[in-house]
């Protein structure tokens, strides 16, 4: 199959088979490897809470959901509060700004990456949420990104909005002063 790469030498090892010990296959060249293409397809449905989240995103709104016991707001919601195991039913509209809690600078290119290296991959605590969300940071040299930095969402143009998390292209500095590190300590 042309689309499948050759096995790299040295990574896979098949010990030699001493076929002389088995009369029926004496002198037969041992099979060292086989290729078995496999494909199974799935049609996903996101479920109730993620559907609510995705439909709101298409309207350029970020909706979290509140734990009925602790009051914590989760985004993206999965439908159940991960701390108490009860359904989340109250939707909470979140801001379009947030705070970088942690980040890393990606210097090595990889298949499928969406921006040029180096780029910054960060966890952003969206205003009003109690859990961080993964996002890219643009509009600032990677060396200047820091925990506590305030950022704002950069959306795709309105006519490209869809029920997709890719509506938020990335986050960029909002120009606000950094937050006190103590206020994000819980989310690290």
């Amino acid at each position: 199959m042309s689309e499948i790469a050759e096995l790299p030498e040295g990574l896979w090892y098949q010990p030699d088979v001493d076929t002389s010990q088995i009369p029926a296959i004496a002198g037969v060249e041992a099979v060292r490897s086989i290729r078995v293409p496999a494909r199974v397809e799935y049609l996903y449905t996101p479920g109730r809470a993620p559907t609510r989240f995705l439909r709101a995103l298409a309207e350029k709104r970020i909706m979290g959901e509140r734990c009925p016991v602790t009051g914590k707001v989760y985004v993206p919601p999965r439908g159940v509060s991960p701390v108490v195991g009860l359904p989340t039913e109250e939707q909470v509209e979140l801001g379009h700004r947030g705070t970088v809690t942690t980040f890393c600078v990606v210097d090595i290119a990889f298949t499928g990456q969406v921006t040029e290296t180096p780029f910054v991959s960060a966890l952003v605590l969206i205003d009003g949420a109690d859990i961080t969300l993964h996002g890219l940071i643009q509009g600032i040299p990677p060396a200047d990104v820091r925990p506590g930095m305030r950022v704002e969402a950069v959306w795709v143009p309105d006519d490209e909005l869809s029920t997709s998390f890719e509506n938020i292209r990335w986050w960029r500095p909002s120009g606000e002063p950094d937050v006190d590190p103590d206020t994000i300590r819980e989310y690290l």
Partner: peptide, 14 residues
């Protein structure tokens, strides 16, 4: 198709 796995099983666990 209306629920994801956690939404499916949570009521049963409860």
């Amino acid at each position: 198709q209306d629920v994801n796995e956690v939404e499916l099983i949570q009521p049963v666990i409860q």
